[in-house]
């Protein structure tokens, strides 16, 4: 089973960027979750982010909030998410990053969670509400575990802090493309390219960009400057509209656009 770093290295050697689809566990239903995830891998997803639903997702916009509330209504739990992951793992070796708020993991017991997540087949963990340095006990436990601790850098992060975060990161560095919550946006931040280039100059870890990426053209643009493209809300909208096939079809257009580049994508899309 490849690690996250190996997956990035493999794509980099091919001259392609990594595509990271985000999916909320238990959305649109517990029974559909595994099929949704395997469909995303088949459509070109390299590393998957699997979201553990939380009642108060304050870093998320309306789309992921809605998927979260519907997953909770369907009875999804931390334990249930690990079961989904374990079932997926029997079918695919694509690396999985668990995406969570801290509280459900504390309640589960952090050490127990880290052990169970490893056993279920997770490679990484991203905590939206534990910025680097916020909790040495929590961060230390993750760093001591088999899971990569995925760190985030925001446009508001000062350069010295960004560099320090990057040095402590594992797997890849998650660059938040703009201030705000998750959610599809029509336009990317104007200075995104410049920001990502500057970041890549000071870090060795691969940099993946997320928040707001919703079109093939945006994905192609970002893959031109970053090592990876993360897509969440737009994918969940596609899933909600078109079911697992709709989500896979949407992701496949992003994959194609990323592999063809901006001009190729424009030609392909006839714009």
């Amino acid at each position: 089973m490849p690690s996250i770093s190996e997956k990035f290295a493999e794509r980099r050697a091919e001259g392609r960027a990594i595509l990271v689809p985000y999916m909320t566990s238990g959305f649109p239903s517990r029974s559909a979750s595994v099929d949704v995830l395997t469909g995303l891998v088949e459509a070109g997803g390299d590393v998957l982010e699997l979201g553990i639903p939380f009642s108060d997702p304050l870093a998320d916009g309306p789309t992921i909030q809605d998927s979260t509330f519907r997953a909770l209504e369907g009875g999804m739990t931390v334990e249930g998410t690990l079961e989904v992951l374990a079932e997926f793992r029997r079918l695919s070796d694509a690396p999985i990053v668990l995406f969570s708020y801290l509280n459900p993991l504390l309640r589960y017991g952090l050490e127990a969670f880290l052990a169970d997540a490893e056993e279920a087949g997770a490679q990484g963990l991203l905590l939206t509400d534990v910025p680097t340095g916020a909790d040495s006990e929590v961060e230390g436990a993750i760093l001591d575990s088999a899971l990569d601790l995925i760190r985030l850098v925001a446009p508001t992060t000062r350069p010295d802090r960004a560099s320090s975060i990057a040095h402590q990161g594992q797997g890849f560095l998650y660059y938040i493309s703009r201030t705000g919550v998750t959610g599809a946006r029509e336009a990317l931040a104007g200075d995104l390219e410049e920001e990502v280039r500057a970041l890549r100059e000071v870090v060795e870890l691969p940099v993946a960009v997320g928040f707001g990426i919703s079109t093939p053209e945006q994905a192609a643009l970002v893959s031109g400057v970053a090592d990876g493209v993360i897509v969440g809300s737009a994918l969940i909208q596609a899933l909600d509209r078109g079911g697992p096939d709709g989500a896979a079809a949407f992701l496949a257009t992003l994959r194609l656009a990323m592999d063809l580049g901006v001009d190729g994508a424009r030609t392909l899309l006839g714009s």
């Binding site: 304050l58 870093a59 801290l102 939206t128 509400d129 534990v130 910025p131 680097t132 916020a134 909790d135 985030l152 850098v153 925001a154 446009p155 508001t156 992060t157 000062r158 802090r161 975060i165 938040i176 201030t179 705000g180």
Partner: peptide, 12 residues
């Protein structure tokens, strides 16, 4: 206490 917030808010 502490600061359990998205990274974006740390500088603020």
């Amino acid at each position: 206490g502490g600061r359990y917030v998205p990274e974006t808010l740390i500088s603020a």
